[in-house]
């Protein structure tokens, strides 16, 4: 069962149904207790409506915007870079390196016996290596190409990680 005050507040706030609203309006008009209580609550409600908001300090907006700018400045470079651009650059380098390696692989006649005398010492060793029956299967196979590719990508990745770590530790040491 709702109290008189509860019903009157619902009436003032406009949260009661149309029927309830009609019934309360009739009670306010007919009953003195309801009438005086209603006037009291309505006056209190109007007082609450008229409360003014507090004002923050003059430079409040400026301080907020400074805080936001500060937050942007603190953001790591990684979050500012467009990942798509990085992917395109990475793809370009990977394709270039792969193409170069393939070109070298095709151009340098390691397996050609007649040319071997004119090659530098290192390549002669390489030729010997590939002519060895145990390692011969590596020569000219895609397995070796894949192996070299993975090695290069891994080397680039590790160098990048190392340089990032070094940069981060340098930044951390700054006052």
């Amino acid at each position: 069962m709702k109290t008189i005050e509860e019903q009157l507040w619902s009436y003032i706030d406009g949260t009661c149904t149309t029927d309830e609203s009609k019934a309360i309006a009739e009670l306010i008009a007919a009953d003195e207790t309801w009438g005086s209580k209603y006037a009291d609550l309505l006056s209190f409600d109007q007082q609450l409506e008229s409360i003014e908001l507090d004002e923050p300090s003059m430079g409040f907006t400026f301080k907020v915007m400074e805080g936001i700018r500060g937050e942007y400045a603190q953001q790591p470079l990684k979050s500012k870079i467009n990942q798509n651009i990085i992917s395109v650059i990475a793809a370009f380098f990977i394709i270039s390196i792969t193409a170069l390696l393939l070109f070298l692989w095709v151009s340098v006649p390691l397996g050609h016996a007649n040319m071997s005398n004119g090659l530098p010492q290192q390549l002669k060793h390489a030729e010997t290596f590939f002519q060895n029956p145990e390692t011969k299967f590596l020569h000219g196979t895609t397995l070796l190409n894949i192996f070299l590719m993975v090695d290069i990508v891994l080397a680039l990745f590790l160098t990048d990680a190392y340089l990032r770590r070094k940069k981060a530790s340098k930044q951390a040491l700054r006052p």
């Binding site: 908001l53 923050p56 409040f60 907006t61 915007m65 936001i68």
Partner: peptide, 21 residues
């Protein structure tokens, strides 16, 4: 547009401050 956000702050700062208070 940073100034747009500054306008939003100006619009709501009084109430946010009052509520925080």
């Amino acid at each position: 547009n940073q100034s747009a956000y500054a306008d939003l702050v100006r619009r709501h700062q009084r109430f946010v401050f009052t509520l925080a208070l």
